[in-house]
Design a protein around this nucleic acid. Structure first.
Lengths: 155, 155
DNA sequence: TATTGTTATACTCTATAACTATA
DNA sequence: TATAGTTATAGAGTATAACAATA
């Protein structure tokens, strides 16, 4: 396999992700869901309730940033906060039904968008996509760019 | 093909894009390149020089937002601005060598990241990825979520 | 003392409204 | 008048520094 050919394929992959990622964020925006809030909702859906500090680590932002984000999301009715009884320094954040519903609605719209394009595909295209996803999904599992451990929980 | 099976595959696609998109933005962040600035640099590399209003339309932000973004990018040495001689109301924005170099450096890091994962793939995996990209790239060409025409120029 | 979270303050990117200059 | 852009101002999300409460 020529080195150039691999480079071109690599470029196609990242450009696709960049372009389609934009479309996905537009879906969130249509639901009045900012990237930051979407990400916190996803983290809570994946991990269950979490403390403010845990969310800050998952999302790789500083504690004061997460304090504010979570406070505003509480005001918007997307999450609740309560003191941790075990360690009373901690504050435990949970999804509200409304937060969960919003997240599900974003998820459904995204699935619908992709699905619309998949239904017409031939069986061979289908198998190819399956094999390709198998390969590509490894890209999301290695370490992150800066050696941090960015959450992989955006469900 | 079962409807459920299509739905699961659709979910894999959008989750991959969401997760890997995050990794790609971390690369930009490491280069001290915000998503907004990255996107303007990409637009300029793709379209050549552009007026402030054109950039605002490409990027789907309001004129005052683009005025400020471009002004700050000029301060940072990434772009230049000059009066349009033909229509003296207009302001033409161009990439500086430094802006172009920054964009190229982001591009190279992204290609390198994907490439690292592709070099070890078998020939059959390779063909599958090729076919899958062919299908998936159509996802970035349809209409945008809100029926606007978001730029597809992030090269 | 160390940890968890908040408050105070500032910077970036976004918006709307009001303004200037040019067509 | 209409268009291109800017300035003024405000809100969201990020950061650092200083503080409070608990372990």
């Amino acid at each position: 396999m020529g080195a150039n050919k691999i480079g071109r394929q690599a470029e196609r992959v990242y450009l696709f992700v960049q372009h389609f990622g934009r479309r996905l964020r537009e879906i969130d925006a249509d639901l009045n869901l900012s990237p930051a809030r979407f990400s916190v909702l996803s983290a809570l859906a994946f991990h269950g309730r979490a403390k403010v500090g845990e969310l800050a680590r998952f999302e790789r932002v500083r504690l004061p940033s997460m304090t504010r984000l979570v406070r505003d999301m509480e005001t918007a009715g997307l999450v609740t906060r309560r003191r941790d009884r075990g360690d009373r320094r901690g504050v435990i954040v949970s999804l509200t039904p409304r937060g969960l519903a919003l997240l599900k609605s974003a998820r459904q719209r995204k699935i619908a968008l992709v699905r619309k394009h998949l239904v017409r595909k031939s069986a061979s295209r289908w198998r190819a996509l399956d094999a390709a996803l198998e390969s590509l999904e490894h890209l999301t599992r290695g370490e992150s760019a800066a050696g941090k451990e960015k959450a992989k929980h955006e469900h």
